[in-house]
């Protein structure tokens, strides 16, 4: 018998007999009923509490804020996609702005060291966010691969204010994740960090030292 058969047989023929599977009540992880404003405040409070930066802007203005941000952080080489409306708009706005736009639609094997050592920041879209934990969710794609939110020292994520939902459970249910998962789905809540040296927090241990979230509102906040 194979190991597989032996293990499954032992589990199936357990000496104390078959087990009853209980039903689950998921009430405690859903039904928050927060208003858009509460979601936004909670998201911002939590992600900034773990060293994330938040910049509020509008759909009309966000690329201006991006240009200012890149200048403020002295970002010269920015990795970004080609197809998603977010990188498309960014590419248009950043033409002739003195920032080198690094193509990411290349197999990692062909530019591993370049990505690890010469890219200052990665720009990505996001699928949305989770208010309860201050988390962004991303489904990396051929256009926006997995590593651009991880390898460069700064990750700039663009989030629409109305894409913030209450809980992780709500996101999974609302968007029907169980019906088809991508190669990689990610929650990102702040920059990379460690507390392995005597419980002292240090950022950027392996991934980005900085995470900046550009939150796009429909119109200017009043």
């Amino acid at each position: 018998m194979s190991a597989r058969e032996i293990i499954l047989k032992r589990l199936r023929e357990r000496s104390d007999g078959p087990l009853q599977a209980p039903q689950s009540d998921f009430t405690v992880v859903t039904g928050r009923g927060w208003s858009p404003q509460e979601r936004l405040e909670r998201f911002e409070r939590l992600i900034t509490s773990v060293h994330g930066e938040v910049i509020h802007t509008t759909h009309a203005e966000w690329t201006k804020r991006l240009i200012e941000l890149l200048a403020a952080k002295s970002i010269r080489r920015l990795a970004l996609g080609h197809e998603h409306p977010v990188p498309v708009a960014a590419r248009t706005a950043l033409r002739n702005q003195g920032v080198e736009l690094v193509d990411v639609d290349r197999d990692i094997e062909d530019w591993k060291r370049e990505q690890f050592e010469t890219v200052d920041a990665g720009l990505t879209s996001t699928g949305g966010a989770i208010a309860e934990t201050g988390s962004l969710w991303l489904w990396p794609s051929p256009d926006e691969p997995r590593l651009i939110s991880l390898v460069p020292p700064v990750h700039i994520a663009v989030l629409d204010a109305d894409a913030i939902e209450d809980t992780f459970f709500d996101v999974i249910e609302t968007h029907g994740w169980a019906g088809g998962m991508p190669t990689n789905a990610l929650l990102i809540s702040g920059p990379s960090k460690t507390a392995d040296i005597e419980q002292t927090l240090a950022y950027g241990v392996h991934g980005p030292r900085e995470l900046v979230v550009l939150i796009r509102h429909q119109r200017e906040a009043t």
Partner: peptide, 16 residues
């Protein structure tokens, strides 16, 4: 900071 959900190896067209 990260919750990493992996469901497959690199698919055709994906770059990493």
């Amino acid at each position: 900071t990260y919750f990493n959900m992996i469901s497959s190896p690199r698919k055709p067209g994906e770059h990493d």
